[in-house]
Design a protein around this nucleic acid. Sequence first.
DNA 1: GAGACCCCCTAACAGCGTTAGGGATGGCTA
DNA 2: TAGCCATCCCTAACGCTGTTAGGGGGTCTC
Lengths: 235, 235
Amino acid sequence: MADKRERRDGGELRSVWLRPRRTSKEEPPLSLARIVVAVIAVLDEEGIERLTMRRLAERLGVMAPSLYWHVDTKDDLIDLAVDAIFGEQSPRGQGSLHWREDVIAVLSAWRATLLRHPWAAAVPARRRPAIGPNFLAQMEILQATLASAGFTGVRLSAATWALYNHVMGSASTESALQITDEERRVGQELLRAHRDRYPTLAAQGYLYDDDWDGSFTTGLTYLLDGLQAQLDRTA
Amino acid sequence: MADKRERRDGGELRSVWLRPRRTSKEEPPLSLARIVVAVIAVLDEEGIERLTMRRLAERLGVMAPSLYWHVDTKDDLIDLAVDAIFGEQSPRGQGSLHWREDVIAVLSAWRATLLRHPWAAAVPARRRPAIGPNFLAQMEILQATLASAGFTGVRLSAATWALYNHVMGSASTESALQITDEERRVGQELLRAHRDRYPTLAAQGYLYDDDWDGSFTTGLTYLLDGLQAQLDRTA
DNA sequence: GAGACCCCCTAACAGCGTTAGGGATGGCTA
DNA sequence: TAGCCATCCCTAACGCTGTTAGGGGGTCTC
């Protein structure tokens, strides 16, 4: 009883005996794998700007600085999380008859993953190159499919990046532009109010789509048609 | 002289008379326009993660909270900056004979702007819809060009977003993946070391391009070919 | 039994965005 | 001319952030 000390946080009294002991809580110890799972959970449930070391630590039944034993920096956590979700889809390669269907299959799985974790699409655009093994594996599948279709050299590179930008871009655009019906209404009114300045946008009636899947698929068709044309040209 | 008071910052002595008077420094007063210029300067020179209210205020010869008289939040500053740079290019519309050249002209100017301000491309992917007047004006030009080419309805929408994602995506990819020769060398070694897992990437020799302009142009060609095919189909 | 290593802890730092509220200035009104 | 009100910048401080310093208990090795 004489051991009680005053702590500055809230001025409440806490004794050593009342301090929560981790061992008594049956929490398993930390590990990189457990941490990454928790990071993804926080990102999925609360969004990227709510991911903090302390919140993450709390979810793991641990104090924030403990995380730094397993990880150098918070950015590492996000890199790990991004790579982890790219590992969710099974890395199957070319199975179909035509390269076109293979590309569609690969990118659709890719897109589904990105929409399942809406925070993910915007990350690679902001950071140094993603070189996690799962991400590289996906790139390998995509590029291998294109290579087997006949692309080589700079044309292979351009085709890869064009498709990459299409999936990542459309997913991040879609995630960022999730707006309520009310916001959409306000936006349309804004456009109509300035219909002299934005006649086409106002006539189209909306700028922010509501059929993102359709836009993705149609856009992908354009891209694939263009790629096919390239193949026909060189063949 | 008796007026000297001790301040807590550094414990140094500062008197009212020595306090810097803004009027004596000939600094013009704040204005939204001056602030936005300063924001862009900080972003260009120091990058987005170095943009802080205090640093920005210092550049303006002002204390940080003063900014909140002109602006509600830091995000507003970034929104304003993004829209401002989209106003740099003159909003000229269709001038050429063929829609294809018009699209190329619009997107090239767009791309040049984004590369001049490498922080900008990644921003719209992260936030709520950009509805600044300059941004909308660019979208209007792009969509009007496509509409005049014959696109309507969902196909117009898909075409717009596909081109949008291509410019934004390639610019942000390029900006994020600016790596040194050393890093590129390390990356290539990493790929070669795991060439069993990534045979195509390893054979290609590099994942992160060094000819971004070429990739952009070639990718755009693919897209435009696909769009042309769509027009031919419906015509 | 000693020592080394692993792994989590407490405490604290500097920096962040933002708010509360004070006070000087300048133009408008009585 | 006196008072008032809006404008616009200031000081002070809040709670939160990522991160570091350093302590100490547990376990495994010799």
